[in-house]
Simulated scan of single mutants.
Amino acid sequence: MEIIFFLINYFLNGENMDFKKIINKGLKKIFEFVESKEEGNHKIPTKLDIEEKNNIDNKYNIEIPEKPQNIEIPKIEPKLSEIKSTENINRNEIIFEENNAYGVSHKGNRENNEDYILIKKIKDIYILAVADGIGGHNAGDVASKMAVDILEEVITKNYNENLSIEEIKKLLKDAYNTAHNKIKENAIGDKEGMGTTLTTAIVKGDKCIIANCGDSRAYLIRDGEIVFRTKDHSLVQALIDEGHISEKEAMHHPMKNIITSALGLDEFKVDDYEWDLIDGDVLLMSSDGLHDYVEKETILKTVSSNNNSKDIVNELLKIALEKTKDNVSIIVYKKLTLKN
């Protein structure tokens, strides 16, 4: 992760280096670390595709600045059931459906599916979640399912209809902290370095409360336009924020898979959002297997041209599978128009 701090320091502190050189040097250093990981010396908490290495020349020496102090996350200790194994679960295609919410997680063009999703009605709320695991061997799929299982258990056990919006936000962050700590505790042996993104929506009447860590996303789409969207915890998002690249350029950027926050990793933070819903709104949630490969205009056209959640998801999945190199997870919740 030191290379991420190196790059961000250069971009944000205004060093007088050519932008392209920074990117090229950054990529070279990442692959030096990837090679040394095989010898057990370093771990790189990224989702960078190794095949991109073929585009990189050999090596530059870069002095890495000292890593900032890690933020200590307070532990909470609810009594959680034993973590469920993923070994006997068919992860090739996972489908959830609950009234006006529908979701699919598909292995896409990868051998294994490291994504996991959840749609569940709990009392007067819907809980919707997308997790995208990272880590070698079987670590990514373990981390993503562990996060979703703990999220589901914490919310189911502690939610009641009298909670305020602020109390729901706190409950979500407690669930994230619990999952983060549990993943770190289990990141040993061939699971070392595992982590996961996690984007969660709780829909309660006309309110939608979002918690986000990583680069999975939630969108609120109204009248064919994106009115709200979560902000990715990623290097390319930092470049967008600084005006170095556009959102369209970010889709094709060679470092688009580098995330700067995830459950289970030292770099961990959770953003929360509160959105108002009106009749006809569409809440779309996805892993980067969709939004890194399917353009915004195509997503909006697909949402507008289909009337129900299942049709939207299935058409978006079909489009994504023609383009993506990753697992694909998509959830759609549609706030139904009230009939007189």
Rank of each mutant, 00 (worst) to 15 (best):
L336T: 01
V154T: 12
K184N: 11
K323Q: 14
K47Q: 15
S164W: 01
D132S: 02
D279L: 09
K296V: 05
D279N: 15
F19Y: 14
A139F: 08
I210Y: 10
K339R: 11
N113H: 03
E82S: 05
F228T: 03
N55E: 14
H106C: 13
K256Y: 04
E15A: 10
I127K: 08
F228H: 15
D206F: 15
E93A: 06
G26D: 01
E32L: 09
I258D: 07
E77P: 01
S287Y: 00
I259K: 00
M194D: 08
S286N: 13
A320P: 00
T156C: 04
S261G: 10
N160Q: 03
N55P: 12
C213K: 06
N24S: 06
M285H: 12
K121L: 03
G133M: 13
L151N: 00
E87F: 13
I226F: 08
I330R: 02
M17Y: 13
Q69K: 10
E242R: 15
I64W: 03
T178I: 11
D190V: 08
S105F: 04
E63T: 11
V282E: 04
A179W: 04
I3V: 14
S105R: 06
K59Y: 08
A179C: 13
I210H: 12
V282T: 15
I22T: 10
N100C: 04
I259L: 13
D149P: 00
Y10T: 08
I210R: 12
D18I: 12
H137S: 14
L12E: 15
Y60I: 10
L336Y: 01
N100V: 06
K207T: 10
S36G: 01
D292F: 03
I127G: 11
N55I: 12
V332P: 09
N90S: 08
T197D: 10
G140F: 09
K339F: 07
I89L: 10
I221C: 01
D57H: 04
L80G: 04
N13Y: 05
I134V: 14
N58V: 05
N16A: 12
T199C: 15
S164Q: 09
I245C: 09
N112T: 12
I95P: 01
E63S: 09
N186I: 00
M1Y: 12
I259A: 03
D279R: 13
H252F: 05
L235F: 15
K191V: 05
I122N: 02
R91T: 15
C208T: 13
T86D: 06
K182H: 05
S81R: 10
L151K: 01
E52Q: 13
L48H: 07
E38V: 06
I71V: 15
I50Q: 14
F228G: 02
K145V: 00
I50E: 14
I83F: 00
I44N: 05
K145Y: 03
K21G: 00
E225T: 07
K20I: 09
E274A: 14
E51W: 11
L12H: 14
N109T: 02
L263Q: 07
H106A: 07
I183P: 14
E153T: 04
